[in-house]
Design a protein around this nucleic acid. Sequence first.
DNA 1: TACAACCTGATAGTTACTCTCAGTCAAGTG
DNA 2: CACTTGACTGAGAGTAACTATCAGGTTGTA
Lengths: 138, 138
Amino acid sequence: MYTIKEVAEKMEVSEHTLRFWAKSGFFPFVKRNENNIRQFSDNDLEWVRIVKCLRSVGTENKAIKKYIDLCIKGDSTISERYQIILDTKEKALQQMEELKQQLAVLDYKENFYKNLIKNNLQDSWNPMNKINLQDAAV
Amino acid sequence: MYTIKEVAEKMEVSEHTLRFWAKSGFFPFVKRNENNIRQFSDNDLEWVRIVKCLRSVGTENKAIKKYIDLCIKGDSTISERYQIILDTKEKALQQMEELKQQLAVLDYKENFYKNLIKNNLQDSWNPMNKINLQDAAV
DNA sequence: TACAACCTGATAGTTACTCTCAGTCAAGTG
DNA sequence: CACTTGACTGAGAGTAACTATCAGGTTGTA
């Protein structure tokens, strides 16, 4: 059993956010002790994990709540939940592609500046070196 | 030369967002024609491209503005800009790692549900099949 | 007795859009 | 010449998902 602080550390989510998620109904099975303090079980951590996963892929909280509710509803919703996972995976793969493309842009920029720096140093004695530099290049 | 609409289509950014970015000072060199209409050059598209890239990696608009201003300032800021690109790349790579981890979570869930469905179908004639299903599994 | 750690609720602030008006201008078409 | 289209402007509200701050409350430990 873990306190909210321990969960925050373990799962790398702020306590604030965990409470916010709890209030949003994302952790319906977290028990409280006699002092009303949340006691996260290992299974509860699984819920945190999946919420974190869905969020980090950009799933809206409304949609997460829907998924959570399906989980609560039980077996009859398994195939629906399965489909959500598949869709989410698809989305994640698209994000991966997007990220790769942006990394290519950054690689290009890196080289662009590398060359700029190299030429700048080489030609710094040359009064004509300005010619090689573009005006306000991005 | 492109109108804002053409840029929006070409770069897959909404006109709204382009105007918002323009107002934020992200495209300092976009010319206007005699009717005050923005005329994006090919070089301006490069600015759109880099802004889009920085944004999609999570760079804040404030930081983007800073980068843009360094670009405007010219040669003296090249190494500083180079460093920003390197840092951004680092951030992007971290995001890639994070995404991979979350994909692993999703893969696990996919299998989890796949098995659940398989067993469910197999045992559907069996009154004991409930035993195999966890209560409110995520 | 102070403190740290948990709780609650309310409220305000943040970022980056996103959308909706409302009104203006200019070009092209029937 | 009216009309539609597409561009522009500014103002202002709405949105998501936190994030932070405050106030007030309980409990267990040093």
